[in-house]
Amino acid sequence: MNLKLKALKKSLWVYHVSAGSCNNCDIEILDLLTPRFDVERFGIVLVGSPRHADVLLCTGIVNKKCLERVKEVYEQTPKPCVVVAVGACACSGGIFRDGYQMAGPLNKIIPVDVYIPGCPPKPESIIAGIVKFLKELK
């Protein structure tokens, strides 16, 4: 296995990008940190800057205003990084796909590795998605 990937898998540092979402996926992501789910026991930590991150958790439709910002955040993240699309909006556009402000879905803008559908996905399914991906990563 590539040394960089091995280091990446040890302890995932996550940066949360909310790009025109309804706030619900964001709250479920925050919920992951709290006592019921507590992902810190797996070494997963939310960090304050994309420059420290291994994983980008992206939510929302990516509207025209935050399009540039999302690209910028992706460029600032050290590679290799994992991009996770959380929620129906990030995966496909969901109920907003016909809207005039829609610039996404996310895979049009940056390469996406993991899709976690659901409106909003339950915290369990977010954990399951990331764990599944880590197992596949070689």
Binding site: S21, C22, N23, N24, C66, F96, Q101, P120
Partner: peptide, 28 residues
């Protein structure tokens, strides 16, 4: 940064569908 054009989208949806759309204005 969060604008999704919901008022306009609502004009293209059925009355019953709009209840689901307005639900997604805000998650909290």
């Amino acid at each position: 940064y969060n604008h999704r054009g919901i008022e306009k989208l609502s004009e293209s949806k059925h009355y019953d569908q709009v209840t689901f759309l307005v639900e997604r204005i805000c998650g909290i």
